[in-house]
Nucleic acid binder design. Sequence first.
DNA 1: GAGCGCTTCAAACGCGCGTTTGAAGGATAA
DNA 2: TTATCCTTCAAACGCGCGTTTGAAGCGCTC
Lengths: 205, 205
Amino acid sequence: MHAHFSTKERILSAAEELFARHGFAGASLRQVTAAANVNLAAVNYHFGSKDNLINEVFRRRLDELTARRLSALQSVRETGAPSLESLLEAFVLPALNLATDRFGGSAFMRVLARAYAEHDQTLRKFLSDNYGHVLKSFAHAIQDVLPDLSKEDLYWRLDFISGALTYAMSDFGVVRRPAGRSDDEHRRHAAHEFVRFAAAGLRAP
Amino acid sequence: MHAHFSTKERILSAAEELFARHGFAGASLRQVTAAANVNLAAVNYHFGSKDNLINEVFRRRLDELTARRLSALQSVRETGAPSLESLLEAFVLPALNLATDRFGGSAFMRVLARAYAEHDQTLRKFLSDNYGHVLKSFAHAIQDVLPDLSKEDLYWRLDFISGALTYAMSDFGVVRRPAGRSDDEHRRHAAHEFVRFAAAGLRAP
DNA sequence: GAGCGCTTCAAACGCGCGTTTGAAGGATAA
DNA sequence: TTATCCTTCAAACGCGCGTTTGAAGCGCTC
């Protein structure tokens, strides 16, 4: 199917899809390697262990996602007086693009949702160590725009926003794309709805 | 430890706690029965299978949770002119009380967060068949309070709110309980922050 | 005490798991 | 060609899984 992709890449894609569907414990390496059309031992050869494969599934997407987010944030801040909405867009649009542009990107959003439900300390630490700084950067930028919002309230609301975004994008919800609307239009509409909702939530009295 | 509880009840409590911590696939019946101090075969004797045990873990709590939510909703509507905040509280507080009143109730909230992340059709269908009507009732009540909000916008925002709530309940985010605050206070604070955020989001222009 | 139904028990079943092994490709360079 | 390095392969390892079994325990009524 994707014979031009490397063994590592095929394993990562298959793992992402199966972890999204069955969870990290629920998807076995035998399922993953069968779906990726590679030998069972290839996982341990290329990734060392299943646990590390899970980490690499995150790293592959999150590295680019955070780079795009930070670059969008930088662009917005350079305009001088960014609006709250433009800051939120800098956070949301890269994720939406990842979920819709790429083959399998939406599976990653479902994997991310699974990670939120995991209380496993290893995975949580990996994510917070490697990608916690992005949330901090956006928090600072938003704090500048909303100087009257206490730091604690700000972090609560950013927490809610992260959750709302992840779940909205991993298609659990009631809102489905209408038949007469293209994927691109749907994405734009979702982003618009989300930014409006999140901005109002952040501005709550 | 809890020798006065029946075997069935001890299994359900231990399963709830371990499913919350390790997931449905990640927690084994051997772990569950060891924690419950019962024989391994007791699960299949009393519940038939692991899958059915999972369902019963939900049924035990959700029957009462939905009853309390609907009764709180009824109370709020009977006041004549309910506020948006009071409707949201009618949805959130019963969950909160369940998590605080009962021994082990907070574990159930984490189990519920896991269930939302599951794409397993069996579990999702069980939940939506048995408890989906509660969400519909709240949606109608909120529509009454926000008559200018289009139906499409309402559903978008309810989607975001479900995600935010799930996320908040799964206790993953950057907001950690401060050292000087009890678990109970932390949960109460979370509910307050959540209602304020969700109400503002629903009222977005 | 005998019989009965419900519950608990230790032991085992077959199976699929993550991981390891050692040999077999296969490309590149001397 | 031979040697080297990286990769793939089939096979096996021990282990823990969900489930089943048949006997033993226990509280009843007769």
